[in-house]
């Protein structure tokens, strides 16, 4: 479903390649882990795969067609800091509705408390806000989620609860999942396949 062919990226001509000739293929419902220390380009890869950055070489395909630049992107990225991924002047309800009206069973599944809807982002904790971001990212168009250190700022209990819920949803909807993290133990628990491209 999601496919990256011969991807290469660097920031500026004179800088080193962060990755080159990188190939990746993910089937629906597959969960893939990408481990590695920070500063090696994992986050840049995530941004390339989800259409935030255009690679210098190679291209990204979804179902055999190049990733389109218009309309709702079928590959959605989740960030490490949910606080930066939401408009601080929007209320939670507006944030979750940005792409489309979330179905009530999704809200229940992610344990979104109805009392949050009227609050501002800074009134929620990191874990609560990350769940709000998940609701927003799980629109009906979404085929593949990229989780870039999504739970590395969260305590173990919140981490488990978010991943359990997300794995369930991914299985039901046959979403592809790419998990980027420097926590190898976490990747081993979550992923069927691990791509050691960025490791030593």
């Amino acid at each position: 479903m999601l496919e990256g062919r011969k991807l290469a990226f660097r920031y500026g001509e004179e800088r080193e390649w962060l990755f080159k000739d990188f190939d990746l293929r993910i089937a629906p419902g597959e969960i893939v882990g990408i481990p590695g220390p920070s500063g090696r380009g994992k986050s840049t890869l995530a941004k390339v795969l989800s259409g935030y950055l255009i690679p210098q070489e190679g291209s990204v395909f979804v179902d055999g067609r190049p990733l389109s630049t218009s309309g709702c992107c079928p590959v959605q990225l989740l960030f490490q800091h949910p606080q930066l991924a939401v408009n601080p002047r929007w209320k939670i309800e507006a944030i979750m509705r940005e792409s489309e009206e979330p179905p009530p069973e999704l809200l229940r599944g992610l344990a979104i408390d109805p009392s949050w809807l009227g609050r501002y982002p800074h009134e929620l904790s990191g874990g609560e806000l990350q769940r709000v971001c998940l609701v927003r990212a799980l629109g009906s168009q979404t085929r593949c989620l990229l989780c870039d250190e999504m739970t590395s700022m969260l305590d173990s209990l919140t981490q488990v609860s978010i991943w359990r819920t997300l794995l369930n949803i991914a299985r039901q909807r046959e979403l592809g999942l790419i998990v980027i993290s420097h926590d190898y133990a976490l990747l081993k628990k979550l992923c069927a396949r691990i791509i050691p491209y960025f490791e030593d």
Binding site: S50, S70, C72, C73, A85, S99
Partner: peptide
């Protein structure tokens, strides 16, 4: 350059 603006673009806005 904020993440949520780029994200909005990814939602096709």
């Amino acid at each position: 350059s904020a993440d949520y603006i780029k994200l909005s673009r990814q939602f096709g806005k």
